[in-house]
Design a protein around this nucleic acid. Structure first.
Lengths: 208, 208
DNA sequence: TAGATTGTTAATCGATTAACAATC
DNA sequence: TAGATTGTTAATCGATTAACAATC
C-alpha cells in the first residue's frame, strides 16, 4: 500500500504521533504546526516534517497540519482503518490482562479465542465472554478460522513450541510476550514485548 | 559507577546479550566467540565486540568470551547485582500480572506494596501475599518506606496525577504502562511500555 | 501582499560495519 | 609457534538536524 523503505525508527514514532494527535483532537484543537507539536512531544520540528513527508504532503505551507486529517492519515498508515482477528495463547494473568483490555477492541483488534494448556483452571473457561480452548485444539481451530494475529503470553519454551503451529495456521503476525526470540518465515511478523528486558533497562538507567 | 556516554542503542541491547548468555549457561557452554554469538543472535560480530568493549575488555584474544564471567559482568552493568524495592500502582489485571510474576523477584525486584483506588475490589486486599493499600495512603507510605521503583498500571489520567506524589516520595524510577508520557525531574527515570503502540507497530508491519 | 510554515535539500551527527594489528 | 579471535581504528552507512526556497 504505502511506500516501502520506511525506517524502523520512523515506524516506532508513528504511534506516538497518533497518540498526541488524538489528545489534540480531544482538546478541540483543529490545526497544529510542526513547531508547536515539537514543543509538546519533545522532538524537533524538523524531524516531524521529515517523518510526515515520507508518506506524502499532509501539511500546508503557512498553515500547518489539520489535526483530524493527520490523525486519520496516520491511522491508515498504521493499518488502523482495518480490523484484525486475534487469538491469545496463554490464559495466565498477562493473557487475561490483554484479553480483557477494552482499548484494543476499540481500535479494531478483536480477540476471538483464548488457548491454554489447562482451560478449566481459569474463570469458568471464558474471559470477558471470550472462550478458552485447550491448547491442543489450536491447530484444528486455525484450519477453520482466519486469524491475523496471535498473542503469545506463555513461557519461552511453549512459545517456541507453538510458533510452527501458528505459522502453519496462516497467522500474519505474532505479538510475543515470551522471553525468547522466535524463528518465523518472512511472511510472518513478530513484534516482541520483552518486559524483563524493559525492567533491566530501567535498572541500568537508575544506576548510571 | 561505569562510564557515562553509553548510547541508548547499546543499553537496549544489553538485556538481550544477558538473556542469550543465560541460555548458553543453561546449555553448559563455557566459552563463546563473537562470531558464534553473532550467528545465534542475528547481529554482527563487530557490533558485539564494539558493545562489550565500551565497558572493558571482557574477552581474550584467540579464546573468545567466558560465558559465566560475561553474564555476571553484564548483570553488574545492568545493576542486577543489587536489589530493588517496588510498588505497583493499579491493581487491575495488568497490575496483578506484574505483581504475581515470579521472574522479577528472582532478579531482585521485590514488590513491597500495591496501591489502588479501590483495594477491596481485588482478591481480599492482597495479591500473592502483597498487600493492597488505598491510593490515598501512597503519600504517607512513601514517607516511611524507601522505594526504588514505582510501576504504573493505571489509566493515563491517574498516572499523570500520581506522578508528582511518586517523585516527591523519593522514587528513583518509574516503570510506566499508562498510555501517556510523564513529566519528571532529571533525577527520576521513566521507562515506558506502551502496549498499544507496540500493537500498532505490529499492525503497520503486517500491512507493509 | 506579507507572514507563516511546510517540503525538501544539504550538513551534521551518530551508529554500524569492515578491517587489521595486537595478543592470547 | 601458528591459529584464533579480540580490541580498536577507520570507513561506511543511516538518521537527525539545519537551512531555506517554495507556497499557501
Amino acid at each position: 500500500m504505502e511506500s516501502k523503505g520506511i525506517s524502523k525508527a520512523v515506524i516506532n514514532r508513528l504511534p506516538r504521533y497518533y497518540r498526541y494527535l488524538g489528545v489534540l483532537m480531544d482538546q478541540g484543537i483543529e490545526r497544529i504546526s510542526s513547531a508547536e507539536l515539537s514543543r509538546r512531544m519533545n522532538v524537533t520540528a524538523s524531524q516531524i516534517r521529515q517523518d510526515l513527508n515520507l508518506f506524502g504532503g499532509f501539511g500546508q505551507q503557512g498553515y500547518g497540519y489539520n489535526v483530524a486529517h493527520l490523525y486519520e492519515e496516520i491511522g491508515k498508515i498504521l493499518g488502523l482503518d482495518k480490523s484484525y482477528s486475534l487469538i491469545v495463547i496463554g490464559a495466565g494473568r498477562l493473557g487475561q490482562a490483554i484479553s480483557s483490555y477494552f482499548g484494543f477492541e476499540k481500535r479494531g483488534f478483536r480477540i476471538e479465542a483464548i488457548f491454554d494448556r489447562n482451560p478449566d483452571k481459569y474463570g469458568g473457561a471464558s474471559i470477558r465472554g471470550t472462550r478458552i480452548y485447550p491448547l491442543e485444539d489450536l491447530k484444528e481451530y486455525l484450519k477453520h478460522n482466519r486469524i491475523d494475529i496471535a498473542v503469545l503470553t506463555v513461557p519461552a519454551d511453549s512459545a517456541r513450541a507453538v510458533t510452527p503451529v501458528i505459522v502453519e495456521g496462516g497467522v500474519r503476525g505474532i505479538w510475543n510476550f515470551a522471553h525468547t526470540d522466535l524463528d518465523v518465515p518472512d511472511s510472518v511478523t513478530v513484534q516482541s514485548v520483552h518486559l524483563s528486558e524493559s525492567l533491566m533497562q530501567l535498572s541500568y538507567k537508575i544506576n548510571h
